[in-house]
Nucleic acid binder design. Structure first.
Lengths: 138, 138
DNA sequence: AAAGTTATGCAACTTTGTTGCAAATTATTT
DNA sequence: AAATAATTTGCAACAAAGTTGCATAACTTT
């Protein structure tokens, strides 16, 4: 695991620091998405709030994580499974938000379907979020 | 217009006040979605921030407006075109966020397609956001 | 191991959203 | 139409979320 973390950071030209390793580890451990608050809690408050913000931001820029649009507009992040190049994400999978446990899951196998748009609209990226009951809460 | 506004408010058992009329008018005028900030600016700062928050919240509860999940997690609202009953929205249309002008458009004619979920996941509601260039910016 | 580079933590601040309460507005009753 | 009852508004004060500058600490490179 540590080797993997090291690799991911170095591949993205990021220096390997305690906070980055720990936060990346959290993402690798948890199948679902993490909110800023989750991370602050699960790290045992070892890192400053600012550090968490900056780490998430740089992970986002590097394409290590992506953020998930939710209907309640809470900010959530999840690991990119595909190869996301710097600044250009392409995780075309559907996200599932459980209305019971409020966990967010990346449905890596479910692709976002394409839709026919009205004349004049050119799509660049599509995102889809499904709310409901997840497999752990049914 | 005024009659329409009056009607909408009364139909939803809301007392007809200045701020509610004005904010509802803004929604009716603008085709796209509005963020909290937009409303504060466009009303000419006539109303208190708190009033705007409370008005949007009650419009949301009554099903007059719905909120839109965006990839940048900014909170946006748009008028419900369908008949949304209290607490139960069903605007199954796709939302389009323009990456040039950053306006959000409700594509009322484009329904959110359904997807096959993995075993154990029961869907309740689906939302889809497409980013790209809108018809005014192409 | 030392120099150079980058990241962290702290403090202070801005923005965003919430709550309680008195005053003002709206709806209702007579 | 005036008075009463019920809501809503704005203010103040607060809580939460996110940002910025800078000195210290940690990581990288040689």
């Amino acid at each position: 695991m540590d080797v993997q973390i090291d690799l991911i950071l170095k591949r993205n030209q990021l220096s390997v620091t305690g906070s980055r390793m720990k936060i990346l580890e959290l993402f690798l451990e948890s199948k679902g998405a993490l909110a800023h608050g989750d991370i602050e809690k699960r790290t045992g408050e070892k890192f400053d709030r600012v550090t968490v913000y900056r780490t998430l931001q740089i992970f986002l820029e590097k394409g290590i994580i992506h953020n998930i649009p939710t209907s309640d507009n809470s900010v959530r992040y999840a690991l990119c499974t595909n190869d996301c190049s710097e600044g250009h994400h392409h995780d075309n999978h559907v996200h599932f938000v459980c209305s019971a446990c409020s966990n967010t899951t990346c449905l890596a196998d479910v692709m976002v379907p394409s839709v026919k748009l009205p004349v004049g609209f050119s799509p660049e990226e599509s995102q889809m979020v499904v709310t409901g009951i997840c497999k752990d809460c049914k």
